[in-house]
């Protein structure tokens, strides 16, 4: 079932097209990631879904409700963690949660109980009555995640959930996100510019650039778009050139030193058993097998002509590997 349907979304600021005809759907219980560099239109897209911005054209339907026509209904269904902190720093963690619950119409003992439960879930229970201004970046982010979950939303929206966090805090946030999906079956829509994050967490990824979605699919599907996995076989002895001609469905074959053979193939998963069988039939002993799938970075590079890492540095002009 599709819980979020985005159709031909366009958002224009004066003469800048921040979002330019974006369409995608998010299925129930999946983690869907919008991956792309800063300024790709990810946050704008998410703000429109969360009813904070009105689209110039196009529609967003959340569980059957139009985000423009019935924003109140949509707001009830979603919890959101913004990219920049949106906590009241002067108040305690508990009070931030309490006010949030109150804003959504909850009160009483059950609200109190749920706040403490969620603070425990994000390992902040002992800091419940400390002012947020003393919290570290990771603690603030965890508190915001707990707050986003307070009203039991069907859909959790995370905008760059680990931006600016140290590796430990990052790993922790990832752990919570996985738990939410696996234990509670929550639908999660997230944005990120970290390739590893999208790769690790997302069931499906939409790559965004310049306000458009340029590719969409599972991490594996995206990588397979490039269609060139690289297989390395290390044989017991140096093979002759003629061995290369024996393989079927191999794009490229090279003999390297020390009995190493490099094979560029469409799909290593499918070709590998056959390749190994053939080599063994020819009387070679296989010492080592490895293969490398192209990473999302290579996918991004392939689609845009530049690396995602490079486009993060806004000050330097995008440099493609091609020009180096």
């Amino acid at each position: 079932m599709d819980v979020i349907v985005v159709e031909n979304l366009v958002k224009k600021y004066k003469d800048v097209l921040a979002v330019n005809g974006v369409s995608f759907t998010v299925r129930k219980g999946e983690i869907f990631a919008l991956l792309g560099p800063n300024g790709a239109g990810k946050t704008t897209t998410i703000h429109i879904i969360a009813t904070l911005l009105k689209p110039t054209s196009g529609r967003v339907i959340v569980e059957g409700y139009d985000a423009v026509k019935e924003p109140g209904k949509v707001r009830r269904l979603i919890g959101i963690v913004f990219q920049e902190p949106s906590l009241d720093q002067q108040l305690t963690a508990y009070d931030n949660m309490y006010i949030h619950g109150r804003l959504y119409g909850y009160s009483g003992n059950e609200l109190r109980k749920r706040i403490l439960e969620l603070l425990e879930f994000v390992d902040l229970k002992e800091y419940a009555f400390k002012q947020v201004k003393h919290f570290s970046g990771g603690m603030k982010r965890r508190l915001e995640i707990a707050r986003g979950l307070l009203t039991n939303p069907d859909i959790l929206i995370l905008d760059e959930p680990t931006i600016g966090l140290d590796p430990q805090s990052r790993a922790r946030v990832w752990e919570y996100v996985r738990k939410l999906k696996n234990d509670l079956g929550m639908t999660i829509l997230m944005t990120t510019h970290y390739l590893d994050e999208a790769d690790e967490l997302a069931d499906r990824i939409a790559i965004m650039d310049h306000g458009r979605i340029i590719a969409m699919g599972t991490s594996l599907e995206l990588k397979n778009m490039l269609g060139s996995d690289v297989i390395y076989l290390k044989l017991s002895k140096q093979a002759p050139e003629s061995l290369c001609r024996e393989f079927n469905g191999v794009k490229d074959c090279r003999l390297l030193e020390d009995g190493l053979i490099e094979l560029v193939v469409e799909n290593a998963n499918k070709v590998l058993p056959e390749v190994m069988k053939l080599v063994m039939e020819k009387g070679y002993e296989i010492r080592e097998v490895s293969y490398r799938k192209p990473s999302l970075n290579e996918v991004f590079l392939h689609l845009t002509g530049r690396e995602l890492r490079d486009s993060l540095e806004a000050s330097s002009p995008p440099r493609g590997r091609w020009h180096r």
């Binding site: 969360a50 904070l52 707001r75 009830r76 913004f82 949106s86 720093q89 804003l103 959504y104």
Partner: peptide
Amino acid sequence: QFGYLKETLVAPA
């Protein structure tokens, strides 16, 4: 500036 306004704007209240 501290982003809290968004928190109040996104609430269904």
